[in-house]
Design a protein around this nucleic acid. Structure first.
Length: 360
DNA sequence: AACCCGTGGAG
DNA sequence: TCTCCAAGGGT
């Protein structure tokens, strides 16, 4: 069955000669591609690492993390042998920390099940933790030149514009449809370049707000451009608003040490280090709330300021108080005294780094 | 399907 | 300040 033919309004030339259309893109890619660190080799480990880091994360942000990570863990087995906490520390500040834990777990799987050699088939790659349809397609095509589609946000945007698809791209059905169309366009000899070329076009030319159609290799065949729908497409429903939380945050100091919490893996920022928080309640003082929720007997020193941190689905408004702990107090499990010098070696997410910054 | 999971840059 | 978003995956 020809998926291209299934589309109602699809331009005839795209339907009849997908490989010629693809060739236009590849020529543009050869002349315009950026020199990025992960494009210097097709080693599956580095392709894999770059794809994980690039999930929902900008190229400029990733570059330094990518270099540091490979310097510390040059191959899969060195990563597999590492402690998870050290992997998280290298990931500190990059966000979406489950990526790092899945990466580490997958490295262990590759070491133990595949003798340290990254698997070479799509189903095996897709089965590793942290690797979904997109990432499996990207690795299979870029590292092994296998003809699997890799449909990310860029490709959804490029494809809907090229084809003039007005459907909501947040629907799984539409994403699958687009993947099938892209699959038919893959030049078998250059599957990996095609994958990267589509994303490069989306990143550098077919951008969300003001696309550079003037320099686009597909300007003559693009439905959206012809019908002036570039800035309308793709159609997607709006994200839900984040809920706001108001917290008291305790900076408890004892000589050079700071009282930190190792966060439970079931909560936001789990398996990382943070500071004691209590949700504000009218009628209760911060001291009362910390005694009730944390069994801490704190003495107020001074108010340090307010920190706002925005996550995808939450906003934290944290009012930070410097406290001391009453002498000879026990500290319940999950809490620990951490020296200032040790902070840099621990995985501490940005939200708490901002709070710690108030002290320095 | 809907929701959760971080962060920083751009308009 | 606000909104959107950037090479998504897991549940």
């Amino acid at each position: 069955m020809n998926k291209l033919a299934d589309l109602v309004d699809k331009p005839k030339d795209i339907q009849e000669k997908p490989l010629e259309i693809a060739a236009l893109l590849l020529t543009w890619y050869d002349q315009n591609k950026r020199d990025l660190p992960w494009r210097r080799t097709n080693d599956p480990y580095t392709v894999w690492l770059s794809e994980i880091m690039l999930q929902q994360t900008r190229v400029d942000t990733v570059i330094d993390y990518y270099r540091r990570f490979l310097e510390r863990f040059p191959d899969i087995c060195s990563l597999a042998d590492a402690d998870e906490e050290d992997v998280l520390t290298l990931w500190k500040g990059l966000g979406y920390y489950r990526r790092a834990r899945n990466l580490h777990q997958a490295a262990i799987t590759v070491r133990d099940r595949y003798a340290g050699n990254f698997p070479r088939t799509f189903p095996e790659i897709r089965a590793l933790p942290g690797i979904g349809d997109y990432t499996a397609g990207a690795i299979a095509s870029i590292a092994y030149n296998l003809p699997y589609p890799a449909v990310d946000g860029n490709v959804l945007r490029v494809a809907t514009r090229l084809l003039g698809l007005e459907d909501d791209i947040s629907q799984q059905k539409i994403q699958k449809q687009i993947a099938e169309i892209i699959e038919e366009m893959i030049p078998k000899e250059r599957a990996g370049d095609f994958t990267q070329a589509l994303m490069e076009l989306g990143a550098m030319c077919c951008t969300p707000n003001t696309p550079g159609c003037r320099d686009c290799p597909w300007r003559t065949v693009c439905t959206a451009h012809r019908t002036h729908r570039e800035t309308v497409l793709p159609v997607k429903k709006k994200a839900k608003k984040a809920t706001c939380f108001n917290y008291w945050t305790a900076l408890v100091c004892n000589d050079g040490d700071i009282l930190m919490e190792y966060r439970c893996n079931t909560q936001l920022l789990g398996n990382m280090w943070g500071l004691p928080l209590v949700q504000k309640e009218s009628g209760s003082s911060a001291e009362e709330l910390f005694r009730r929720d944390w069994e801490l007997d704190l003495r107020f020193i001074k108010y340090l300021g307010s920190v706002r941190h925005v996550f995808t689905h939450q906003v934290w408004q944290m009012d930070v108080i410097l406290f001391s702990l009453k002498p000879d107090s026990e500290v319940k499990s999950g809490l620990a005294w951490i020296s200032r010098e040790k902070l840099k070696d621990l995985p501490i997410p940005k939200a708490f780094q901002k709070v710690l910054q108030l002290m320095i």
